[in-house]
Amino acid sequence: MTQLSTSLSYAPGKDGGRIGCRRCGHELCAVTERWKDHARILERPLRELAAVYTTGPDALLREFACPACGLVLDSEVARRDDPPLVEYFQMSR
């Protein structure tokens, strides 16, 4: 088992291997798929974080959480209609 980031793990297997949650081991998808499609997506206005987050109304915190244990696997600043950032791992090497 290796890690693809601080929060994602990789295990060799079918379809080039599987991406999972680093903490609980929950399997998200094949490494050839977009793993974020298999995570829980949570969005909230950044201004809800704390009083010093005096951000505009369109600025959101988008979190991708493990559907099994709730670990935040990744996060990004986004507007509601902007697509999630792409992340793709080529594990053949």
């Binding site: 929060s7 950044l46 704390a50 005096t54 951000t55 505009g56 369109d58 600025a59 996060s75 600043v77």
Partner: peptide
Amino acid sequence: GIDFPMAHGLSGGYPGAPGR
């Protein structure tokens, strides 16, 4: 970096607060 913070987090970390 006023309406949108520009110091983004990594691996699930949150962005730093914006300027004002």
